[in-house]
Design a protein around this nucleic acid. Structure first.
Ligand SMILES: NC(=O)c1ccc[n+]([C@@H]2O[C@H](COP(=O)([O-])OP(=O)(O)OC[C@H]3O[C@@H](n4cnc5c(N)ncnc54)[C@H](O)[C@@H]3O)[C@@H](O)[C@H]2O)c1
Ligand SMILES: NC(=O)c1ccc[n+]([C@@H]2O[C@H](COP(=O)([O-])OP(=O)(O)OC[C@H]3O[C@@H](n4cnc5c(N)ncnc54)[C@H](O)[C@@H]3O)[C@@H](O)[C@H]2O)c1
Lengths: 270, 270
DNA sequence: TACCGCTTGTGAACGCATGCACAAAGTCGC
DNA sequence: GCGACTTTGTGCATGCGTTCACAAGCGGTA
């Protein structure tokens, strides 16, 4: 029980268990984690990693558009972040900029891909080929970004063997063999909530070390497995909170209706 | 330009613009934000809000299962967080526990729902009824949680009028009238990336103040609009990063293969 | 009623992340 | 070749979020 932890990536969610950002810190763990590992894999804050992925996409767009170099300011605006933050994020992976000029787009793409481990293709398996699973299996954006979907699993006998997005659905009992055979490194769970934990356990048993979970449940996994969750209900509820707070504030500030209480369309009146 | 900002919720992403957590802090803003608003809507960290949504779901499950009360420890384990963190999160919304006993499940549910603004139903519109849009429209989990999907939009003439999940698809030109009429408070964008910004602008014009964006683009919105994004490519890439880092560490630590290097299945060996 | 054990709620400390501001470093023009 | 200008990379301060640890408070019990 003590070895288990909640999955990360909510908002600002820093897990109690070791993170990339903590590998240099003293860890109250007993096995593995030798100090010698410090030099390699510099500690990159998890938040920065997520942003690097965003920069990468923006950079790809720029490259397609023919840009040769970008300044931190341009890239920051395009990625929707502060330019200082962007430079700091990039500094985690090294110094690839030229002062007075900016960054070479191609170089930056290559370096970010290297850090994110995208040089090696990460094979993805989707479990639960229902509404969401179909959408994921049909989505062309993954293979294009280095994440080929190489296996689909379900329990529904009517689905087994049916090709979805060009790939036949397999039975979940075949997870061990197929995942090993196709070197699946990321498992995506899109089953109903009650089945999620079982499916997760099977994937882990099969050696899958990373899980992306769409089911609204807290998965229990061993320490060496990385879980991220996408929880739409939570997203909507956070938005709902902001609506409520805004309404409260507006009501407290003055008697004006919640919408359009004097603020010009996003521009701060100075 | 200065009034625009990147959307939040990456990992540990704290926005540059005012957040719930900042309303008590001195803000270098010029309009609105009157000090009088301080008493109401206590400053709840955004990260805590996201977790409250998780607690709510766990609590609902407990209630269905007949539990009358829970201790912070039980709830924390079920939600996958530290019990101290859980208590602090709950303390943001008030003191509804009984020392020596725990929390009454029903009371906690009610209070969290109140804070998250779930007492008022939040009407949702989905734009872009493709693979993902279909899945969202058919998903039964939203209405059940206080988020009725009341409108679907697309541009594809073949889709207009076709019922999806029991609701006919409307043309995006009707966004203004329909959103107003059905009091849509949350817009979900599931269009191809190039269309996302335009769709977003239309929603904002129609008075929608909250947006959940699935398209892998950085949306530019005025200050009073709240955007959250769900970016699967980023999720996968963060997972990929962890695979890479782990492989690096293992290689540096000893010559052992990345998988199963001595650790017992999640249990820390003491 | 008084005591005891249990759990909450929170003050305080710590650590991570953000943003600022500037020195270092390179380019471009002359 | 030199100076001025531009942009990077980063030390530092600040603020937010997490965690610890414990006093306060409540129910049960004698
Ligand atoms: N559809 C959405 O838009 C949406 C949105 C948010 C969250 N989710 C979550 O995603 C998950 C999937 O949603 P959905 O709408 O696709 O559901 P769905 O019912 O359409 O599909 C679920 C699929 O999982 C399969 N399945 C059931 N048990 C299984 C098992 N033990 N092993 C393997 N496969 C199994 C079913 O056969 C079915 O094909 C759910 O947990 C849901 O809460 C979905
Ligand atoms: N399908 C997935 O699993 C998945 C995963 C991650 C991200 N996404 C993202 O979600 C978005 C939708 O993906 P999808 O697979 O459903 O795509 P899709 O092509 O299946 O569907 C897109 C839909 O949007 C409609 N559309 C196009 N332009 C529009 C406009 N201007 N206004 C309104 N509607 C418009 C199209 O008619 C189509 O019905 C994309 O941005 C994609 O990158 C999808």
């Amino acid at each position: 029980m003590a070895a288990q932890r909640g999955q990360r990536n909510g908002v600002g969610d820093t897990p109690p268990a070791p993170t990339a950002a903590e590998i240099t810190a003293p860890i109250p763990r007993v096995v593995a984690e030798v100090p010698a590992a410090r030099e390699r894999a510099r500690a990159i804050p998890e938040a920065a990693v997520a942003r690097l992925a965003v920069y990468l996409r923006v950079l790809s767009g720029m490259q397609d558009q023919g840009s040769g170099t970008v300044s931190s300011e341009e890239l920051a605006v395009a990625a929707g972040v502060n330019s200082a933050k962007l430079r700091k994020d990039l500094s985690y992976i090294g110094s690839y900029g030229t002062r007075g000029v900016g960054y070479e787009v191609a170089v930056l793409i290559e370096e970010i891909e290297r850090i994110l481990g995208l040089t090696r293709k990460q094979s993805v398996a989707v479990v639960g080929i229902g509404n969401l699973g179909h959408a994921l299996a049909n989505y062309g954006g993954f293979p294009g970004r280095g994440f080929p979907v190489t296996a689909l699993f379900d329990v529904d006998p009517d689905l087994i063997g049916v090709p979805v997005g060009g790939l036949p659905v397999e039975h979940i009992d075949d997870i061990p063999t197929i995942c090993a055979e196709r070197e699946v490194s990321i498992g995506v769970i899109a089953t109903p909530p009650p089945a999620a934990q079982t499916v997760c356990d099977r994937l882990v048993e099969a050696g899958v070390q990373c899980i992306l979970n769409f089911a609204p449940v807290v998965l229990q996994v061993p320490d060496h497995v990385e879980v991220r969750k996408v929880d739409l209900a939570v997203e909507l509820q956070v938005l709902s909170f902001h609506v409520a707070r805004r309404a409260d504030n507006a009501a407290a500030t003055n008697g004006v209706a919640p919408e359009f209480n004097g603020k010009v369309n996003g521009m701060v009146v100075t």
